[in-house]
Amino acid sequence: MSIPTKTRQYRYSELGSYDNLVLEEVPLPKLKGNEVLVKTHAVSLQYRDLLIATKQYPSEVLPNLVPCSDMAGEVIGVGEDVKQWKSGDRVCANFFLDKLNHVQTPETDGSALGGAVQGVLTEYRAFPAHSLVTIPPHLSYEEASTLPCAAVTAYNALLSGYTPLKGGDTVLIQGTGGVSIFALQFAVASGATVIAISSSDEKLKVVKDLGAAHVINYKTTPDWDKEALKLTGGVGVDRVIEVAGNATLGRSIGAVRLGGSIDIIGLVGGPNDTGPVDIVVPTIFRSLQIRGLYVGSVPQFHDMVKLITANPKTTRPVVDRVFPFEEAKDAFAYLTSQAHVGKIVIKL
């Protein structure tokens, strides 16, 4: 394949709505010695992308932003200093381009795709060689594009935290979005028991098929924390994957056992939901481990790929819908509807 000199990309003319996305053609910068040029085949969307579009994201983003952080593609060129990649390799870029270990710094935060640096909703993009990870061989590009944020976050929460998940543990998982579905799959692959909650009986049928042992509809059972206690014989779950934030944190605390853990990974309950939640007293007197985490590192991505490759059926990504590149705005609209289970993908 000849090396292109231009790329078509989406860019925000201004933030405020995904309707402000503009499709344009721009020149590609000359490839640096330590960079790899990748042809994008698929991009998956995150709730974060909506927050950024609507100016609700609690961190600064670049002006004239090219959105999105998660992609899968094919290497088509390498810089003169790159030894580990060659044309034809199938790769994903890590969410944080420069997070090469478990330590979070302002510098690693400043390498977040689709926010602090330009994103991946583009036909071609150069990446630092150290930021790339090989795609599991059994996954399509569409499936692999779902891994960098949602899957790595779920892996970090369950298998790279204070105490890694073990067989026999009980995990409560909220909702059926990307992180939640991957957390369910990784928990099942690890031999854990999963309790899943959702407001939709149809979505709960899907998670049952994916291996959830118990399901709770939180619309018909608003005291889902008490139901989780019943399902665990009054003990409580070992850990909670908390994706809603303050909207549900109180009930998550009520559902977890003494000495259990809550991984806070999202705020789909709303970025402005700051209602009072008593964290300090139960955390102290119930010896809880409450951990916030922000995606993960390149080594964690590599480790997760090993888990996915070893458990190809259990961990296959759930892709709800695939939109063509020219219909990217429709993909954002579908994400806004929250009708999906798993991931929404844009195919290039």
Rank of each mutant, 00 (worst) to 15 (best):
Y12S: 10
S13M: 13
G16Q: 12
V22I: 12
V26R: 15
P27L: 07
K30C: 10
G33P: 06
A42Q: 02
A42E: 04
D49L: 00
D49N: 04
L51F: 14
A53Q: 10
A53D: 10
K55C: 12
E60V: 12
L62F: 07
P63L: 10
N64Q: 15
N64F: 13
P67Y: 04
C68H: 01
V75E: 04
V82M: 12
S87P: 12
G88T: 05
R90S: 09
V91T: 06
C92T: 08
N94I: 02
K99R: 15
E107Y: 10
E107W: 06
L113T: 01
L113Y: 05
L113W: 01
A116K: 14
E123D: 12
A126V: 01
F127K: 00
H130E: 13
H138W: 10
H138A: 14
H138K: 12
Y141E: 04
E143P: 00
A144N: 05
A150F: 00
A157Q: 06
G161V: 05
Y162T: 14
P164Q: 08
V171L: 08
L172P: 01
L172H: 07
V179I: 14
V179L: 09
A187W: 03
S190N: 13
T193Y: 09
A196Q: 09
I197C: 14
S199I: 07
E202R: 14
V207K: 01
L210N: 02
A212Y: 02
A213Q: 06
A213E: 03
V215I: 13
I216W: 05
D223E: 15
D223S: 15
D225N: 14
A228H: 06
L231D: 09
T232S: 07
V237G: 00
V240N: 04
I241S: 03
V243Q: 05
A247M: 09
G254T: 00
R257V: 11
R257N: 11
S261D: 08
G266Y: 01
L267C: 12
L267R: 05
V268G: 00
G269R: 01
G269W: 11
G269I: 03
P271C: 04
P276W: 07
V277K: 07
V280C: 13
V280T: 15
I284T: 15
F285W: 14
F285T: 14
R286E: 10
Q289F: 13
Q289L: 14
G292R: 04
G292I: 05
G296H: 02
G296N: 02
V298P: 06
P299Y: 04
P299D: 08
M304S: 01
V305L: 13
V305Q: 08
A310E: 14
P312D: 13
T315C: 15
R316I: 05
V318S: 02
V319G: 00
D320A: 03
F323P: 00
P324V: 08
F325P: 03
K329V: 11
D330Y: 08
L335Y: 07
T336A: 13
A339M: 14
H340A: 10
K343Q: 02
K343M: 01
K347M: 13
